Amino acid sequence: MHVIDAHKLKLAGRGPTYATIYLLYDGAKNCVVTWKSGRYAGEKWLRVTTQIKTRGTPGLSAPDLPPYRYAGPLRINAHKKCVKWGGSIAIRGGNGQMTSQSWDSGKYEHCG
């Protein structure tokens, strides 16, 4: 598998990068994973998700699970298909309130 695209997740597009969504391809399958940035790996107050789908499918999504370093990887057969991919972050503040930011490719792309 090779990384073919990536997107950094920040709150409101500013500040530190909390996680990066990576899209990979091996010639037949696409894979997506949302990886927490180094200093946030393992932190439970920062949660991440990842998602991927092809046209006409409900798609796949996954949250981060212990040890809370990444969400995914999710693999989908994408030979001669385009994918829509993305992920999200959710941060629990000191007052217990959640702030989140999500992103997806917005269109089907990277047609294999």
Rank of each mutant, 00 (worst) to 15 (best):
P67N: 05
G15M: 12
L23N: 05
A90L: 07
P66N: 06
Y68L: 02
R14T: 15
I89L: 07
V83N: 03
T54M: 02
I21L: 03
G86M: 06
P66C: 03
Y68E: 04
K44I: 13
Y18V: 14
A90T: 08
Q51C: 04
R47Q: 15
L23K: 03
T57W: 05
D26A: 02
S88F: 01
A78C: 14
Q51G: 12
A28K: 14
L46N: 02
N30Q: 11
T34S: 10
I21K: 02
A41P: 00
T54K: 05
V33Q: 15
C82V: 07
G13K: 05
I76C: 05
A28T: 15
V33M: 12
V33R: 13
N77W: 12
G59E: 04
L11V: 09
T50V: 13
V32H: 01
L23R: 06
H79K: 15
G13F: 03
Y18A: 13
A78H: 09
I52T: 09
A19T: 06
G27F: 09
A71E: 04
G38P: 07
G86K: 03
A71M: 05
L74G: 11
S61M: 08
A62P: 06
V32Y: 03
L65C: 01
Y70V: 03
N77Y: 13
Y68P: 02
E43N: 14
Y70H: 10
S61Q: 13
N30M: 09
Y40Q: 11
L65G: 00
A90D: 08
K53G: 12
Y18G: 10
Y22R: 02
P73V: 12
P58T: 12
K29S: 10
P73C: 10
T17P: 13
Y68C: 02
R55M: 13
C31Y: 04
L65H: 10
K81W: 12
A71F: 07
E43I: 06
L24A: 06
K36A: 03
L74F: 01
I76Q: 05
L74Y: 00
D26H: 05
E43W: 09
G56C: 01
S61E: 11
L60S: 05
Y18N: 14
G38S: 12
G59S: 05
V33I: 15
R55H: 14
G13C: 07
Y68N: 13
A12Q: 14
T17D: 15
V32E: 11
K36D: 03
G42C: 00
G27M: 06
E43H: 13
Y22K: 04
G86Q: 10
L46H: 00
R14S: 14
G38E: 09
T50D: 11
T20E: 04
G59K: 10
L11I: 12
I91S: 02
Y25H: 06
T54G: 08
P63V: 07
N30W: 04
K80G: 12
K29V: 03
L60I: 03
G59Y: 07
K81F: 13
Q51M: 12
A12I: 13
